[in-house]
Design a protein around this nucleic acid. Structure first.
Lengths: 205, 205
DNA sequence: GATTTCCGAAACGCGGCGTTCCGTAATCGA
DNA sequence: TCGATTACGGAACGCCGCGTTTCGGAAATC
């Protein structure tokens, strides 16, 4: 349940006496979980279906993960964590803009609804929320915070703005449209939203 | 030639033959559902508990509502729909600002977590999402749209801004903090967010 | 080869949803 | 007044999915 999934005490997994646990089965389970997650979302995911598709047994799954929530978050993050890496090349504001648009393309894609279903589950399941915050939301915010700080140093952003407010003003509208679907979440919206949000914090030039 | 009894039946639902349905029981069920919803959220709400607390039977509940989702949304909206009415007195931007701060105080209160749990349920349950959009989100957006239009007419807002983007830029950050809880949702945040969001669309004076 | 541990299959208990059945209570029509 | 009709509370049921237990067999270490 901590960063990489290590459900049981495996300090010296290979040193133990008997038959070692099969990493191959673990990967097949993660793969099957990811496929079913993409097809049916978190609520439609059942341990029984994962076991059947992976050719494994429920006991084996529960040996690796404490429950459905941990398995789902692991499968989700194994796929999405590497996506949309943070750019580090141009000006701070340009990096931030590119990051936001990359996030939009992720949330617009096949895994957008899955992201929404896991965020929704996190509302009532503290472990899912903690995992999503620590491994999906926060890693991006950490880098975005740095970029905002660089933008302030470079004189591209007003020094009195609160970086957290800036981040929430950028992420909030995206996730709102992802979760409600009341209006389309696309590049056109991101463009307007970016212009609107940055006007309040960026230094006019 | 249609039988006269048919027209009579169709026009007057309460004129049916047998024992009439008790509106009093319906209200007790709604009340019990609201109490349990506030205490345990949507996922912790069970029909059995509602029936017991209301002194009713499950059959009666299923006679009034098709399922748990419909009962929960009705109970939620019966309490929250009248809250935070839209002000209509001062300047358009002042009305909009007051509306946003009223919404923050609602989402910060006892029913904030319940709101989050129903939004979360709506992600996977189309009926809950439709009910929340039509009876919670959209009524406020309709009025907020009008205020934005008035602000544009009054020259307080740039005429080229998309009202939907403005609304999402205001609501999005609030709901993001409500759902994730990564940073506090309070008046201080609302103040900064408001300043930041409006700077991009309001006309400087 | 003996021991230890993992594996897949099957069955179980639990809880909650939604349904069915029964005896009772309330209202309408004759 | 009396039967027909409909709603009510209580109890039981089937269903499904989670998480657990049990069992026989297989794989790796000693």
């Amino acid at each position: 349940m901590s960063a990489p999934s290590e459900a049981h005490d495996a300090s010296c997994a290979t040193c133990r006496r008997g038959r070692p646990r099969s990493e191959r089965v673990k990967h097949k389970v993660l793969e099957a979980a990811a496929e079913l997650l993409e097809k049916r979302g978190f609520k439609g995911l059942t341990i029984e279906a994962v076991a059947e598709r992976a050719g494994a047994s429920k006991v084996t799954i529960y040996r690796w993960w404490p429950g459905k929530a941990a398995l789902a978050t692991d499968a989700f993050l194994a796929v999405l964590a590497p996506l949309a890496p943070f750019p580090e090349s141009r000006s701070p504001l340009e990096d931030l803009r590119e990051h936001i648009f990359g996030l939009v393309s992720v949330l617009t894609g096949r895994w957008g609804p899955v992201t929404a279903s896991l965020i929704a589950e996190g509302v009532s399941d503290p472990e899912v929320r903690a995992a999503m915050l620590a491994r999906w939301i926060e890693p991006r915010r950490v880098q975005a915070r740095k970029v905002v700080a660089r933008a302030i140093e470079a004189g591209e952003m007003h020094p009195e703005v609160d970086p957290e407010v800036v981040l929430d003003s950028l992420y909030g509208p995206l996730y709102l449209r992802l979760l409600f679907g009341h209006e389309p979440l696309d590049a056109a919206f991101a463009t307007q939203m970016w212009k609107n949000a940055l006007a309040g914090s960026a230094v006019a030039r």
